[in-house]
Amino acid sequence: MTSVDRVVAVSLAAALLASTALTASAGVAVGFGGVEFEGDETAVFNENSEELPPGCEEVSGDADVTVSAASAGYGYPLFEYHPPSVEVDACERVTVTFESQTRVRHQWIVRGLPEDTYPDGYFGVEVDGATEESATFITPGEQVTLPVESSVGSQSESGLRGQVKVDGGDGDVDGIPGLTQHGWREADDGDGLPGSFYSGALGFLVGVALVAGGRWFDLI
């Protein structure tokens, strides 16, 4: 081993040890391998604290809401929002603080908002890792229930579903763990027989028909 090789080997070992120690101390994925990230990453989508949605003549009031995303254990649900249902007034300016109690990325996305005010009809907050972020939106000027979900991976199917009830809402969103759903959804079209069964049955019937026809006309 040359001196250069030794220097490289020592450097490698030192870097590995330093990185491992950094990882252990950081806990969450911040600078875990020597690269210094700026911190936990968060994002806000379509924040709006000024523009009034259709049906609103003025902001009816201000409210603060805190929602968290948490693991719920293995099985169903895997994740859940606390609280899953949020009650607000129409035309209310709502500041949402969304926090994650897990180590992975989550979102709190309110869908079904007026597209004139919210591009693509949604407002949301994203947090990556055990951190929090706040953002503000103004609720619609009508009595409505808006679905809430996380679009990350299959988190929505795994329990991250909720609702925002404006002025009491107009019903409950389907599929919220503990409120309107109590297990994995059962598909209504997943129990069909395999395609080969139908092919075999078709072949059987055609075979019977051919022979029966042949006998009927005294061909066989």
Binding site: S199, G200, A201, L202, G203, G207, V211, R215
Partner: peptide, 14 residues
């Protein structure tokens, strides 16, 4: 499956 079904059907009818 189609082929097997066809043969079985023909044999059954015969």
């Amino acid at each position: 499956a189609l082929s097997i079904g066809l043969l079985l059907g023909a044999l059954t009818a015969l």
